[in-house]
């Protein structure tokens, strides 16, 4: 499985990472290399194997519907790059 530049661009868009032309070429090469290594998994016939989603056999972990007062807004905003009037602020959406 070889990854080309176009595919790298598509993945970078999905992952919301701006990457340089140089990085595109590097990622294409490195991802191809890694995926070729991963091809090794195809040596195994797994048709009859159930995927293992959760390693622990635990179910129904719940909390009760009891309110805990939210922390002060300013405590969260202390790390915010930009906020205004009690909102996080971001540049235009479109």
């Amino acid at each position: 499985m070889a990854i080309d530049i176009k595919e790298v661009e598509h993945i970078a868009l999905l992952a919301r990472i701006n990457i340089s032309e140089k990085e595109k070429a590097e990622f294409a090469e490195q991802m191809t290399q890694i995926l070729q290594y991963v091809e090794k998994l195809n040596e195994l016939n797994t048709n009859e194997v159930e995927p293992l989603y959760h390693i622990l056999p635990i179910y129904n972990v719940f909390r009760e519907d009891n309110v805990v007062e939210s922390p002060d807004r300013d405590e969260l905003f202390a790390n915010a790059p930009q906020h205004e009037d009690g909102y996080y602020k971001v540049p235009r959406i479109l």
Binding site: F62, R63, E64, D65, S70, P71, R73, L76, D85, Y88
Partner: peptide
């Protein structure tokens, strides 16, 4: 008021994890 019913979990802060509200189920 905006952002007054929020905490690190629902604000997606690093290291935070969800626990399911039984009432929802």
């Amino acid at each position: 008021e905006p952002n007054t019913q929020v905490c690190p979990i629902c604000s997606g802060f690093p290291g935070m994890l969800p626990v399911l509200n039984k009432k929802v189920v």
